[in-house]
Every structure is written in C-alpha cells, then in structure tokens.
Computed example of a mutant assay.
Amino acid sequence: MVTALVRCTELGSFHTFPSAIAMSELTWTALRGHSEWIENCCFSPDGRLLATSSGDETVRLWDLTKPGYPAVAVLSHPDSYAVWSCDFSRDGGLLCTCTDTGGVHVWKMPKRDREGNLKTSEGHLVRSFCSKDAHGFPTSLYRCRFSPCFNYLAACGVDRTIKIWCWREYDVFQATLVGHKNSVEDLAFAPDPDSHLPNFQIASCSRDRTTRLWTGRVGGNDLQCKILQGQGGPKWALAVSFSPDGSLLATCCSDGTVQIWCTRTLTEPRVLTGHTSTVWSGSFLHTAADRLVLATCSSDKTVRLWDPVSGKQLLQAERVMSGAADPNLEELFCCRLSPDGRLLACCANDNNVYLASIDGKF
C-alpha cells in the first residue's frame, strides 16, 4: 500500500481540477422494502451485508450473497422515530444506529451457518443510549459511528456536540466534545486497526461552516482541536470521510466541491470540481489493483468516482434512479463502496437503495 507520506507529498499545494467528461452507464438494481426515504447505508466489513436506515423507523439488512439481494432482517426501533444513521463495528458483529429522538442503539448481528445462510432474520438489541442536551432533553442525532478499537462509538447532531460512549460489562463511560456553534452534520473516525488504546482522531463537520479534526485520549486532558481552513474561506461541509489508511480526509461541500486534505500536513486541500449541486456523501476504497478511489453523490442526481490523489474524475454515472415513478424524487443522500470493491450503493429519497456492480472497473 502507498504510504501516507507519499500521498501527502503528491497532493502538494492547492489545486482545482476540472471534471473529466467520462460518462458511464452502470446497471442499477433497486432494493425495495422501505416505506420512507433512506438516509444512510453501510456495508459489513466482509461485504456480505448491506444495512440501510430509513425514515420508516427501521433498519433493513440485505444479503448481498443471494440473487436479487433480498432483505433478510428488519430492525424495528424501540423509540419509533426516523433512523438517521447506521454503522458496522470493525468485526461486523455489531451494528449501531441513531434516531431522531436521540436514541443510540447497538445490535448484535445474526450469524451464518456453514452454508453461508443467516441463521435468523432477527437482530438482537444489546444496548441503548440516549443523547441529551444541557437541560436533560433528548436531542436529534444525525450520525453514529463505531471507533476502530472495540466498544467505543460516537454520535453527533442538533445539540452541537459529539458524544462518545464506551461500554463495559458493568458501566458506561461518556465523553462530550464541545466546540461547534451549530448542528454537527457528520463525523468519522480515522482508521487505526492496530490500536487498542482509547486514543482517537475524529473529523466532524457542522452547519457553522467549520470542519474540525479532534485528536487525543477519550477522557484525557490532552485533547486538541484543529479547524481546517482552506483557500477561499470556510466551506459548509455535509460529510467527512477518511481514506482506508487515514492519510487523506475528504469533505463534501454544499457548493458542489469535494476537498481532499492530507491529514499529516493539513495544508491547502486539493479541490475536486464537477458536481453542480450539494455533495451529500463520499466513500473511499483501496482496490485490489492498489488504486485509491473516492465515490461521491450529489443533488445533481449523479454519482462520480475520482482518483483523489491526481484529482481525475474516473466515472460519472447518471440516471441512477431511472426507474423512479416520480422524477422529482431523484435525490441521492448517501453512496458507499463495498470493502471487496464489487458494489456501489446509493440511498435515495424515493424509498429505495440502488446497487451497481463496479467489479473489475477500477
């Protein structure tokens, strides 16, 4: 794998790259079952399951090893409100979700038998938390994420903070990161697969038009917060994502651009241009061919794949939702690349999630 130092050096100083004219017609399969818009999705680490969270108060699990990608489990939430986010733990055994009423839930995933079939269609709820503001009232949460080290998860939302929970057999520890001046839209843990210590690096973005990088020890006194400032002033970022080795950070912005930061230097970002409206989501993949790819989706109804180091656009996919009954519902909220590099998933507000095969293309 290319080292972080090399990647940071290649990024160099500030550049803006025009989009390529590359067009591609991917074949999309619609997964139907949710009765409301789908806000977020995530692949299991082995690439065999896709989880989708929806305004219909449920999370659905789709079996990607079966023809047609059937829905094999429905996780109904105890607080009965929109589920904004979902995320698998590093080993794939747990799934965390968060809701519009401040609920954070941890689910144990169904196991498979020797033939690869899921033994049950139920996910078991093992723990729940509640995010409350300074007055003790529950606050709406937008995102939840597991940390690379086990038993830590974080959530962010309306109350302008990031809350981190660590649970053990008999107690629960909670820390709160304070600094943002408006709702926190998204957060991401930097990958650190070899760490078993409660140290972390978290990126967060907010409606206060700042993207922050938090570094330190959970509960410690050495917490540092760096506000990322690029040329042209602060950008309103809607999503943040780290590359698989943590050397790069992508921020997806409301002005249609994507900023690529080197996490070692945090100098001027590389700016990817091409989208013509808000970029809602970004997802990195390090392919089997040793190539780093970034997928983004936007209100311009396109999904684009980029080489984030060179700035080159590799693919522009349109008509993702060509089968939608109402073209006015063509809004893509989230895109994810599967860990095995086979699939691209996009969540939409027409109540469907769309899958396309990209195996071998990159």
Rank of each mutant, 00 (worst) to 15 (best):
W84D: 04
T58H: 08
S13G: 03
T52I: 07
T9L: 13
G68I: 11
L75S: 06
C41F: 02
H77D: 06
D87H: 15
A82H: 05
D46A: 08
S19V: 12
L64N: 10
M23L: 12
D87W: 08
G68F: 09
T9G: 09
G68N: 11
W84M: 10
G68M: 09
R48T: 09
D56S: 05
L75I: 04
A20I: 01
F14T: 03
Y81K: 11
S35M: 06
P18V: 04
R7K: 14
L49S: 06
A30T: 10
F14M: 05
I21T: 14
C8P: 00
L50W: 03
L61P: 11
P67W: 00
P78G: 00
V59I: 15
H34C: 05
L61Y: 03
E25G: 06
P78C: 03
E25R: 15
E57A: 03
W62V: 07
E10R: 15
A22F: 08
F17T: 14
S54Q: 07
V83R: 00
T9D: 14
A30H: 09
W28F: 12
C42R: 07
L49H: 02
F43T: 14
R7V: 10
L11K: 04
S19I: 06
A82P: 00
Y69T: 09
G68R: 12
K66I: 02
S53T: 10
